[in-house]
Structure formats: structure tokens, C-alpha cells
Simulated scan of single mutants.
Amino acid sequence: MMETRTRTRPTQRERSDGTIEALLSAARALFAAHGYNATSLDAVCGEAHVTKGALYHHFSGKQHLFRAVYEREQARLARVVARAYSDAEQPNSWEAVYVGARAFLAEALASDVQRIILLDAPGALGMDTMREISTDCLLMMREGIRRAVASGDILSQSVPALSSLLYGALCESAMAAARADDQRAALDASLLELRALFDALAAAAARA
């Protein structure tokens, strides 16, 4: 009977994936701690324990590496919002949209998220690239609003237009909180206004 040998050596794909993961983890930690401009590729390679050649095999440079970190951060933020929406007491409701929006703003208060997504990304990537990447949260808001309109929770002449208005307001509120001297107070003020806005739209639908 022939013995089946157990593979112990990682495949080329596994080694490649491991290198990418090490680089992205190291880059995120350094970008969050020191910012985009102050983070060198040498520092990233040292933190990830890989060579500069290995980095350039997967990323064309620092901007490309930062974009990959930004994409991951946006995907994580979208998961946070989706989980808050689905865990709301009234799923698929206008209230669930508010819960998701509140989770979005609360997450933006974390210093590492602020540094990567709010403070450094505009200069490192540009607004057009940021919009291209950060579509998941906008699309989730659009779907949440569509469901709220369908259930009669709110009225809307244009779901896409209302989605853009609310998402733009959330992004600006997050940026304002990130730059405020008292970030918690700025966030609390934004949440109060957001609550009033959501309640007003719901009340308008109830009167119709």
C-alpha cells in the first residue's frame, strides 16, 4: 500500500498571498500611526519582514500600496455598516438606515480610520479615485432607502438623489469630526442633527 504524503511546503500562491498580507498589515499599521507622507517603503518592508523586491513584485509603489490599504478599509467599513443595519430592531426599515448611518459616523471616530480614510486619502489618492473605490456604503444606503420607500416609511421623489445627499452629509460630518478639537462633541452634534433629519422625513411620510 502506497503512503500518501502530506504536503508541508506552502505553494507559490500561498507564499504570494502571505507576502501581500504581511505588506498590507504592516502598511496599515504604519499609515495609521505615522501618516502617508511620513511612512517609507523601507519601513513597511522592515515591519513586514520582506525585501523591497518582494514589495515591488506586488505593488508599483507607495501610492499603489496605500490604495490597497484604503480599499480594505472601505470594505471593512461597509461590513460594519451592513452588520449594524441587519442587526437593527427593525431590519429593512428607515430606522435601520439610521442605525447604519450612525455606525458609519461612530467608526469614523477611530483614529486609525480617520488617518487613512479621512485625512490622508484625499491627498494620496484624489477624490475621483476615492469615489471610485468607496461605492459600497453609498450603494447600501441607496438600497436601504429604496426599501424604506417601498415600505412607506419615507417618501422620496428620487432614491439615488436622496442617497447621494445623505451619504455626502455623512462623509462631510465624519471629516468635520476628524478635524474638530473636540471630536466626541462634534460627532454627538452630528448625530443629533441626523436623528432630527431622519425623524422629519419619517413624519412627512406619516402625514401624507
Rank of each mutant, 00 (worst) to 15 (best):
L201A: 10
A189F: 09
S40I: 02
S60Y: 10
V159A: 06
E132W: 11
E3V: 07
I133K: 01
L138I: 13
D17L: 15
A82S: 07
A169P: 03
S190M: 04
A203R: 08
E143M: 05
L65C: 03
D136N: 11
L194Q: 07
A27T: 03
A185M: 06
L109V: 05
E107G: 06
I20N: 00
M1W: 09
A204N: 15
A26S: 07
D188V: 14
L24N: 01
R28C: 00
L162G: 07
S190H: 05
M1T: 11
A189S: 12
A208H: 13
I145E: 06
R79F: 08
L118Q: 06
A205S: 14
S16T: 10
E71P: 09
T19H: 10
D188R: 13
N92E: 15
S93R: 06
M140S: 14
I133N: 04
R83M: 10
A54I: 09
D188S: 09
K52S: 14
L24W: 00
P10Q: 09
S156W: 01
L197Y: 14
E3Q: 14
R76S: 15
L30S: 02
L119W: 01
S190Y: 06
L55G: 03
A68S: 12
V159S: 05
A27L: 07
A177Q: 06
T6D: 02
Q74A: 10
R28S: 05
L139H: 08
A96W: 04
A196H: 00
T129A: 10
D182V: 08
R184W: 11
F198N: 07
R207N: 14
C137W: 00
Q90F: 03
M141H: 03
S86I: 02
G61F: 04
F59V: 00
I20A: 06
V81I: 12
R83V: 08
S134K: 00
R76L: 09
Q183T: 11
G61L: 12
E3W: 14
A185I: 01
A121P: 02
A43Q: 12
A196M: 12
L55F: 02
R131H: 11
D112Y: 03
L125F: 00
L139W: 12
A106M: 09
A169F: 13
A196R: 08
